[in-house]
Computed example of a mutant assay.
Amino acid sequence: MTTATRPAQRKGVLGAKQLKLLFARIGETIEAETRMLRSNPVIDLTAANTRKNRCLYELNIVSRELARFEIDDEIRAELSALRKKVEGNAAALRAQMTATRDVIGILGDAIERAESDGTYTSVSRLPAGYE
Rank of each mutant, 00 (worst) to 15 (best):
A95T: 09
A32E: 07
R25S: 12
R54H: 05
V42G: 08
I104V: 11
T98Q: 06
R68G: 08
L107F: 09
R125F: 01
G88R: 02
D72H: 12
T50V: 10
S122G: 12
A77E: 15
A4W: 12
P7L: 11
A90W: 00
I104W: 00
E115Q: 14
E58I: 07
F69S: 05
R64G: 15
A24D: 04
A92N: 10
A128Y: 04
A24Q: 08
V62R: 03
A16I: 02
I43Y: 00
T121S: 14
A8M: 07
Y130F: 06
E78M: 07
Q18Y: 05
I43C: 08
T100M: 14
I104D: 01
T100N: 08
M97G: 03
L59Q: 04
N53A: 06
K84R: 07
M36N: 03
K85T: 12
K85Y: 07
R94L: 13
I30H: 01
E115H: 13
T46A: 09
L19K: 01
F69M: 15
P7F: 08
G15L: 02
M36Y: 00
T2G: 08
N89Q: 05
A32L: 12
N49F: 13
I106Y: 07
G118I: 14
T98W: 00
L59M: 10
L21C: 05
P7M: 09
A128K: 13
R54N: 04
R125K: 05
I61R: 09
I75F: 01
V123P: 02
Y57M: 14
P41H: 10
L59N: 04
A77D: 15
D117G: 10
L93M: 10
L59I: 08
A90D: 06
S63Y: 03
L19G: 00
N40R: 14
M1D: 00
E65F: 10
A32T: 15
K11A: 06
R83K: 13
D109R: 12
R25N: 09
G15A: 02
E131Q: 06
Y130S: 04
Q9F: 12
S122R: 14
Q96I: 06
R25A: 13
S80Y: 00
N89Y: 02
A95E: 08
D109V: 08
E65C: 08
D102G: 03
V103P: 01
R51K: 10
K52A: 05
L22A: 14
N89H: 11
